[in-house]
């Protein structure tokens, strides 16, 4: 069954702050096999003009996707998560995420479309730091494959 169009434009309240830790960035960089020193060495990051170690570009997905869980698991929306695949992912950065950031995410449903029986959901996460400045916007496209007949 197609998802309710009236959810388009709906925003969910900001998440509690996610505090970005140096060691979490180190763990993430190791997991993607990226030895760039700006991820682990504060001095190397400072040499590039950053106040502390920065996170790899896709790190913030952890925070944005967790926030998107409010949409995914919203019982009123009724998305069948067992049929959901990640279609597209996009980020727009005002600055890199860095250690010490306390990030909150405001999640909004940008669009709901029905394509060939699949529900296509565009979810936007606006990620702000403690001072309220926008750090990054993450767009997550989720595709809920059509249920089989019967």
């Amino acid at each position: 069954m197609a998802l309710d169009q009236s959810f388009v434009g709906r925003s969910y309240p900001p998440t509690d702050p996610y505090e970005v830790g140096r060691e979490k960035i180190r763990e993430f960089a190791a997991a993607i096999g990226d030895p760039h020193p700006a991820y682990t060495d504060p001095e190397a990051a400072k040499a590039l003009g950053h106040p502390d170690v920065i996170a790899p570009p896709t790190f913030v997905f952890l925070v944005a996707f967790k926030a998107a869980g409010r949409v995914i698991h919203d019982p009123e929306l009724g998305l069948d998560y067992s049929r959901v695949v990640h279609g597209d992912q996009k980020f727009a950065y005002r600055r890199p995420v860095r250690a010490g950031d306390r990030l909150t995410v405001t999640t909004t449903i940008d669009s709901i479309k029905s394509l060939a029986g699949n529900d296509v959901l565009d979810v936007r996460g606006d990620v702000h730091d403690e001072s309220g400045e926008l750090v990054v916007t993450a767009w997550i496209k989720l595709v809920a494959r059509a249920a089989e007949e019967g």
Partner: peptide, 10 residues
């Protein structure tokens, strides 16, 4: 500089 990325999408 990984901080030089302004947009990234796939």
């Amino acid at each position: 500089d990984p901080g030089a990325v302004v947009e990234y999408g796939v």
